[in-house]
Design a protein around this nucleic acid. Sequence first.
DNA 1: ATAAACCTTAGAGTTTAATCCAAGGTCAAG
DNA 2: CTTGACCTTGGATTAAACTCTAAGGTTTAT
Lengths: 153, 153
Amino acid sequence: MYRIGELAALYDIKADTLRFYEKHGLLSPSSRSDSGYRLYNQDDSERLKFILRAKAVGFSLNDIADLLSIEVDKSNRACAEVKGLVDTKLEQVEAKLAELQHFATSLKSLSNTCCGGPDSAEHCSILEALESSDQHIIAKKEHHHFSHSGHKD
Amino acid sequence: MYRIGELAALYDIKADTLRFYEKHGLLSPSSRSDSGYRLYNQDDSERLKFILRAKAVGFSLNDIADLLSIEVDKSNRACAEVKGLVDTKLEQVEAKLAELQHFATSLKSLSNTCCGGPDSAEHCSILEALESSDQHIIAKKEHHHFSHSGHKD
DNA sequence: ATAAACCTTAGAGTTTAATCCAAGGTCAAG
DNA sequence: CTTGACCTTGGATTAAACTCTAAGGTTTAT
Ligand SMILES: [Zn+2]
Ligand SMILES: [Zn+2]
Ligand SMILES: [Zn+2]
Ligand SMILES: [Zn+2]
């Protein structure tokens, strides 16, 4: 049996987090002491491990609640359900990944065109790109510091 | 001069969003009508364009406030400041990207080992991986459905 | 003149995952 | 028996970027 602080220490999380998980239906201690302290047993600990692993692969706490509801009733649930959750999450992650990759590409191209010097930003290529009316702002890389690259002097 | 709904329509955003940007100091209409309606001029419109472009490359509204404060005082600000903001953001984006890539890899490997069939999840490889005590859960791909791949029947 | 569409405000709600706080009860050591 | 570490509760706060609501005033078209 672990008290809340002990279990938290075991997994390097805060006691608050455990109370939070409890409030959100992810993990309840299997018993309480006479004075009301939470007491977690080995099964609770395993369940926490499950939660933390699921978090580590990108599931939200809501997703994890779904996973746990299957986990505790495995024999009446199908592989398809589990795989569905994983695949849905994978799609979400890949969508976000695509967005961030686009950001990274744009930011790199913005960064590349700017001299980064200590002088006036009056004709900074980054600001120009953000101001400009045309659409190439992002994916296309212009120079500008090719034409004022000496403004450092 | 545009009223709030007109400007919003022009950029395919909600009037609410414009009020939100105003409340957060990003964009205020240059005037008001007699009856208190917001009136945006061409400069306001350009500033909004700037904001939306910055958003499109991954900047948060807070970042954008910083960018705008440089933009309006360009001649007294340095390229270095602008590039600094871009590079900082790029680092953040790349950190997030790495995390999501890790998620994607793990999710793919989980998905690959699971048959996704309609039968009992009692020995679903995904659940097993999340339960298991060993560390390979994520990056390494085990099979399990190789050994129970027939459970569909 | 009256309805529809649009505008005003302040403030609450959404999502995610905690983290922090205050006021108080409990437990082990000295 | 008192100190300090730990526990209890409910509720507030954080960050991000909106989105929505309520209760009411304005504009436009018929
Ligand atoms: Zn420069
Ligand atoms: Zn520059
Ligand atoms: Zn299966
Ligand atoms: Zn499976």
